[in-house]
Design a protein around this nucleic acid. Structure first.
Lengths: 217, 217
DNA sequence: CAAAAAATGTACCGTACCGTACGGTTCTAT
DNA sequence: ATAGAACCGTACGGTACGGTACATTTTTTG
């Protein structure tokens, strides 16, 4: 049984960090590069073997089949994304708000990055498969992780009296919508971001400002 | 020169309604059905010819090549989507707000429909092509149309003193974000909507409520 | 009703790519 | 140093699909 089907795809054990050897990580890095410019069609087993200076046989030994390779790419990239955890519990209203704004900025940086866009395009393109491994992988190791992190941040704000809301998940969804709007989908469709949309700090600032208008205590 | 490259793809003349013969529309309907369950891989020329009882030669005569067929499917579906225009200029605050809410509900109905999701998945999957015809097609005949419609609706509300904002496009983006959040992307990734997210009227209602908190006069 | 235009269905070709096999090479451990 | 494992590069089979050609049938038109 391949590495892909035995551990990466096993969503019951989705907590452990998924180890790759350095050689495999180097190959996955090449795979990412191929994906970012060229899309899924550009990531062929022969092409990856050529650009990464490895053999196809190794690819199949490591990842099982092409789907396993794609899943490994997604899992590997997800393992590289880390969000800053809340810096200490002792913070006044001002610094807490700056934490929220930093979180939103980091969120936009990840979502609007070319790598994330390429992987989202890949997963969306595969979302009509029987099991839809990539979509679930991206959701569970990407969005759900971020969502959990955001909820804990917002809960802390409520506990300290900076925010007021009923459901943390609901509040996070609003914050997400205010920050992302339809920019994500437009980027996924290939539209270029406007200069204003490229100023992620400014975008995050106004989003947080509006969020506080709705949920500030 | 094929129909696809001569008229559908001609973005300079993107205003005229794109005519198809009834026979062609019937074939495009079958193509849509194939796309909705099965994704792009399921839409093969041979498969479409078989299910639609037409010949491959006719497909190539009508649409040029496979890309032209995909573009025709997108253009055809876009031509079927219509939003209710604002019903008369004489309306009080209450009915105007109901118009806004109806617009948001219609927006969600379109975006979360299986057909729209399938076409968005298709266009996103093709967004790394050289010209990226599908993405631009979906943007110009879909999102931009809706955006223009929304701006005029919001401008009317501002003119009547129901709303207060600086930039109509910016206000619309906020309304969009409040209503859609990350549900669209999650659906694109294959996740099922929660029961609460399926209540589009309720979702639109709270979105409009929050929008009025931010932009109400 | 007959000629012409259009459409159907099938057969075919070329290409692209997944997956496997195999000979040769490099690394590792004892 | 040497045996064994891992790996590289390449070549090949099988398959799926885009696109074309052509004979037959259906529809339109004068």
């Amino acid at each position: 049984m391949s590495l892909a089907t035995s551990s990466i795809l096993d969503e019951t054990a989705s907590a452990q960090p998924v180890e790759f050897t350095p050689r495999q990580e180097a190959v996955l890095e090449h795979a990412l590069a191929l994906l970012v410019d060229g899309g899924e069609k550009a990531l062929t087993t022969a092409g990856l073997a050529r650009t990464a200076n490895c053999s196809k046989e190794s690819l199949y030994k490591w990842f099982g089949d092409r789907d396993g390779l794609l899943a490994a790419v997604v899992a590997y990239q997800a393992s590289k994304v880390h969000f800053p955890s809340e810096a200490g519990a002792t913070s006044d209203a001002q610094t807490y708000r700056s934490h929220v704004q930093a979180f939103v900025t980091a969120l936009l940086e990840v979502l609007f990055g070319e790598t994330s866009l390429a992987l989202n395009r890949l997963s969306i393109g595969q979302s009509n498969k029987d099991s839809n491994r990539l979509g679930r992988l991206l959701l569970v190791r990407g969005k759900h992780m971020i969502s959990a992190r955001a909820r804990s941040l917002l809960e802390a704000g409520r506990h300290k009296g900076f925010l007021k809301f009923e459901d943390a998940e609901d509040a996070y969804q609003v914050l997400y919508g205010l920050a992302v709007r339809d920019v994500h989908v437009r980027l996924l469709l290939g539209e270029r971001a406007t200069p204003a949309e490229k100023d992620l700090g400014k975008q995050a600032s106004t989003a947080v400002s509006r969020f506080y208008s709705l949920f500030g205590a």
